[in-house]
């Protein structure tokens, strides 16, 4: 019997090792698996590389991990958001490394990892500073830069509903990086608002098939 459901957030992030690369879903506040990130905070892993679109804001989720000195490196497209005070403080102090990646390249690098590909050439950023040190090739008369796959040891994803096989549906624009990140990590951990029975999700509408998911934990929506 396959049952990917786990009973607690602590169980969901159990085994996360120091030095891990962690893919964290979300765009702005939408789709950020806040409770899972807080479970990582409680779990204690250090020296993490975090892959996420924004660098957190305020005092929660990724910002809290940075504040507690647990993040060695962040790979993201837009670290500078409203209230990203902890990232900015650590960045200015030189105590966090930043790898800046165009947003589509960030997503596609994870897709490549999940799809078993050795990378790809993209025109995005090929004329920019972000292509420095990378192979640039003319394809169809246009400059393209080679980008490597980007996989994670762990992905933390937020979805709306999931079943015990790990099939997932998402909510509106909170879907964002979730489906791609789910494919790109050795261990994919998902927080859902609601567990449903096998067969309750319309097979035509499943967004992430359970093969990409390892653990599912229920976190009920705040009032």
């Amino acid at each position: 019997m396959i049952d990917k459901r786990v009973a607690s957030l602590a169980e969901a992030v159990q085994g996360l090792a120091d030095g891990s690369t962690v893919l964290v879903g979300g765009f702005g506040a939408a789709g950020v698996p806040v409770e899972l990130v807080h479970a990582v905070l409680d779990q204690g892993a250090r020296d993490l590389t975090i892959v996420t679109n924004n660098a957190g804001s305020g005092e929660t989720d990724v910002a809290a991990l940075i504040r507690e000195g647990r993040v060695r490196k962040i790979i993201c497209s837009y670290p500078r958001s409203m209230g990203s005070i902890w990232f900015e403080e650590f960045y200015r102090a030189g105590t966090i490394e930043l790898e800046l990646v165009p947003q589509g390249t960030l997503s596609e690098r994870m897709r490549a990892a999940g799809a078993g590909l050795g990378g790809f050439f993209t025109p995005a950023g090929a004329d920019s500073l972000l292509a420095r040190g990378k192979e640039v090739r003319m394809i169809g008369g246009r400059r393209h830069v080679f980008e490597e796959p980007l996989g994670g040891d762990v992905a933390l994803v937020k979805a709306l509903r999931g079943d015990r096989w790990g099939n997932l549906v998402y909510n509106k624009a909170a879907r964002n990086f979730g489906p791609t990140m789910a494919t790109a990590a050795t261990l994919t951990v998902v927080q859902v608002r609601e567990f449903v029975e096998l067969g309750d999700l319309d097979p035509e509408s499943v967004v992430t098939p359970g093969i990409f998911v390892d653990r599912v934990v229920q976190v009920e929506e705040e009032a």
């Binding site: 497209s77 500078r80 990232f87 800046l100 165009p102 390249t105 995005a124 950023g125 920019s128 972000l130």
Partner: peptide, 26 residues
């Protein structure tokens, strides 16, 4: 037609690019 819309020479700000490069080429 070159476009500069993601970074200035202000070293005080951490760089941020978002989707600008993908959109501009695509």
């Amino acid at each position: 037609g070159d476009l500069a819309n993601w970074a200035t020479d202000d070293a005080h700000l951490p760089p941020a690019v978002g989707g600008a490069m993908d959109l501009a080429v695509g």
